[in-house]
Write a protein that binds this DNA or RNA. Structure first.
Lengths: 191, 191
DNA sequence: AACAAAAGTGACACAAGTGTTACTTTGCTA
DNA sequence: TAGCAAAGTAACACTTGTGTCACTTTTGTT
């Protein structure tokens, strides 16, 4: 019925992700995106109304994937495998974590095309948070996490620490060992 | 000899800082800057060749202030007061910390006007790092930090943890207590 | 072969940011 | 008070990004 597409939605999302990480939200535009996809700018407008529409759509997609994974983690029954699985998945894809962070602090856009996506992102963010909070609550109940620390702080601490850049290019195993150590014991030695 | 200036270099830097934090490097431009200073765009060109020239100049200024402070911390003789002082100063001005992070991963600019500043920023960054590394070394010698962790990781961990956002708006004292706890002991309870 | 329908293109008009310059304003000073 | 020098302005030409639309291309269907 129609001619073959030169790029799939996944191509579009993949390129969007790379550009967002490279040049940031403000630096992103349809010209470089079209160039990278080797397609004319106009073609992209066939699928998305504008840059905000595309980006918010992509972010919804990205967050839904993560929530799916969190749901899977939720089905693991013991806390230790949950923690392990969470560590692994965030370490395995720090880029996605950075995208999710961008999604949370998206600049204000007042457009009829993005309103729906923005609402969805807010709601997905809440869903993500609740899922993670459940995990923390479980950890506190099993006396794995200190009960006196606020949940949000424990979560922030975990995500932040996992996201530390490996500037010295240590071998992955060693790196993960260090991250695990700091998460578990901090860095100050008691006397 | 000349007419009175409508804005000082400090006004310019202050506004630049706020805008950088608000809209990021890519979103920053001379139009909004001029508007915020209630001055015409052309006036700013009297002092800086372009946005990169201004931003890199401002960053040099910001980093020099911080290094001055690090030097002061270096003069404190016992490790605990050094640590305390470092915590306090970063907690007191997270915004400056974010600016310094931006300075480190500045996008490539190939302009004759910014080259000098970029070199200076690199060199200041190195200076900052060495100063902090000395502090870590001292901590390791005094058995305050685990010797098996790389210096860069210890520093990254400290800066990252201090920079956790206080989303729940906890009172400062309580907040600092929690940060200190996590830095010291991590969050996993040993059995 | 003729066509329908979706995909893609390129040009246009417009908006926003950049850098320069001729000009005006202000305040000191000779 | 004449005049100079620095500060500031506003308009111009240019570049880059935005959104649209008439048009062409490709491919399956009748």
């Amino acid at each position: 019925m129609a001619r073959e597409r030169k790029f799939t939605k996944e191509d579009l999302y993949q390129e969007t992700k790379e550009l967002l990480l490279e040049v940031g939200y403000e630096g992103f535009n349809f010209s470089i995106l079209a160039d990278n996809l080797k397609v004319s700018r106009g073609a992209i407008y066939k699928y998305f109304k504008n840059k905000d529409h595309l980006i918010t759509n992509y972010m919804v997609y990205e967050m839904e994937k993560f929530i799916e994974h969190l749901t899977y983690i939720g089905t693991l029954d013991d806390f230790d495998s949950q923690f392990e699985s969470l560590l692994q998945s965030i370490l395995a894809d720090k880029d996605n974590q950075r995208i999710r962070e961008m999604a949370i602090k998206l600049p204000e856009i007042n457009s009829k095309y993005t309103e729906e996506n923005r609402k969805r992102i807010s709601s997905l963010h809440l869903e993500m948070y609740h899922s993670l909070q459940e995990f923390v609550t479980k950890g506190k109940k099993q006396k794995k996490f200190p009960a006196h620390l606020p949940d949000s702080l424990i979560l922030g601490f975990i995500f932040n620490t996992i996201d530390l850049p490996n500037h010295e290019q240590l071998p992955t195993e060693e790196w993960i060992g260090h991250i695990r150590f700091m998460l578990s014991h901090g860095i100050v030695i008691d006397n």
